[in-house]
Amino acid sequence: MVKEKKTKQKFEPTIVAFCCNWCSYAGADLAGTSRFEYPPNIRIIRVMCTGRIDPTLVFETLRMGADGVLIAGCHPGDCHYQKGNFMMEKRFSYIKKAADDMGVEPERVRLEWVSASEGGKFTALVREMTEQIEQLGPNPMIQKASATIDAFKSQRLRWVMGRSQIKVDIEEVKYRQTVDSIMHDEIERHAITRALKEKGPLTVQELAEISGLQPSRIVRHILALRKNGVVNEAGEKDRQLLYQLI
């Protein structure tokens, strides 16, 4: 009985699109002017340039329940501000990695290039994305999103991501590996600090249960957080030390 009801009620995704004023927003306008038609699931938010889009915006949008996020900018070389879209492209590789690790399907978070004259492309893109996400179902929202958002707000991660926009002075592969490991560390550490903030002092065991991380990994993070002056000991519980935010 329940199954029947499910198939009758079609899932209608909500897709948020960040479109840049000069290219993709204009492309979407052109789709309208040309009277193309596409599914009504998309909501456009205007920005001046895709370079504007902070990774935390993408994850906040997912965390708040969007089933998909589309970032649409100018084709490489056409950015009104010269290289905003290039920076977005590089930034997107980090966003994508974090999203993949969170278990967010690649069809849900996309970066595409749509020029002001590509009303048709915009239309096709919206149709494709809506259909794909319809198939996938609602966004399986993951608590890790909050930790991911915090990680992408951290100076440590933002600095190494930002540096890669300018110049990488060591071997690219090694740099990227370092950024990825910093990303993981920061996401996991923020999950820990978040748990401590919300629930007060916790043991390694409790943190492992809440975060789903291996206890030995929690220990590793606790030692680093301790060294950085973020946590310290707050007594004992069940033959374990309690840790608290300083």
Partner: peptide, 29 residues
């Protein structure tokens, strides 16, 4: 020129774009 890339990259999130600040975009979301 108001492109906002500095704002999105700043490690301290110390830069805001007038009229297109994170808080304003987030409010829309």
């Amino acid at each position: 020129r108001g492109c906002g890339s500095c704002s999105a990259e700043c490690p301290r999130q110390a830069i805001t774009m007038r009229h297109f600040g994170d808080h304003q975009l987030l409010a829309q979301v």
